[in-house]
């Protein structure tokens, strides 16, 4: 599970994340919503241990990411926003490298790679060089990397970005299925996605949580029963800010 306690991040004088606290339990899928620049990615980067928080703490399965990063990182599968990959490798080579990093070896490594390739529908491109892949395949290769070691915690930064409608549907179903026995935190701009696959959602605006609840609760709070209206009501547009 993921516990985030009063986490903040300053970039110079700019406050990107302001005293954010939330918990994602096992079996929960938390949707992380908010306008561009609300601090979603920054929060995720702090939770995964990529950047240190200015204050506050994140714990993964009870292990502090700042005090014991090595242990905590073994429990996390992370899909960064831009789905970065090593372009000079093949899909298979890349996943095998990730398996090595995750200390998988022998048949466990081969099984994990096979399974990740199957789950993310990469069989047809498994031996293709990554720099020749289309955006959807790149995204799914990076997702496969996050699922590879069957982590207890999944953190996905816009997992459906750049996918076609069929792929979007598949990924949502996958998140829903995996969410049964993992703690998942994922960010999105697409509000239907929240209803489709989240058990709970928070809306973040300018580094603060402005709404929190199950999709049904959020819809009940909304002026005319639509998440879009609620989103527009509680968040600031960048033209207004």
């Amino acid at each position: 599970m993921i516990e985030v306690v009063n986490i903040s991040k300053h970039f110079g004088t700019k406050l990107a994340v302001d005293q954010l606290s939330f918990t994602v339990r096992k079996g929960e899928v938390l949707g992380f919503l908010g306008p561009n620049g609300a601090g979603k990615s920054t929060t995720m980067r702090m939770v995964t241990g990529f950047i240190p928080p200015s204050s506050g703490e994140a714990r993964i399965c009870g292990i502090s990411i700042t005090e014991n990063p090595y242990e905590a990182k073994t429990k996390i599968g992370y899909l960064p926003e831009s789905a970065p990959l090593y372009n000079d490798m093949t899909v298979m080579g890349f996943l095998k490298f990730c398996a090595d990093v995750r200390k998988l070896s022998g048949s466990a490594k081969n099984d994990a790679v096979e399974k990740a390739i199957e789950t993310c529908f990469l069989t047809s491109v498994a031996h293709q060089s990554i720099d020749t892949l289309s955006k959807g395949y790149r995204h799914r290769t990076c997702l496969a990397q996050a699922l590879l070691h069957d982590p207890e915690v999944l953190i996905l930064d816009e997992p459906t970005d750049g996918l076609d409608p069929n792929q979007k549907y598949e990924v949502r179903q996958l998140i829903k299925r995996l969410g049964k026995d993992k703690a998942i935190l994922f960010s999105t701009h697409i509000l239907e996605e929240v209803e489709a696959s989240c058990t709970r959602a928070v809306i973040v605006d300018r580094g603060k949580i402005v709404a929190d609840g199950t999709p049904a609760e959020l819809i009940a709070k909304a002026p005319n029963g639509s998440l879009t209206e609620l989103f527009r009501k509680v968040t600031t547009t960048d033209t207004a800010a």
């Binding site: 990529f50 090595y70 992370y78 960064p80 970065p84 990730c98 990093v101 995750r102």
Partner: peptide
């Protein structure tokens, strides 16, 4: 390429 973000979140010092 942003792969530093992968490397930074892998259990690799």
């Amino acid at each position: 390429n942003g792969t530093i973000e992968l490397l930074g979140t892998f259990p690799v010092s």
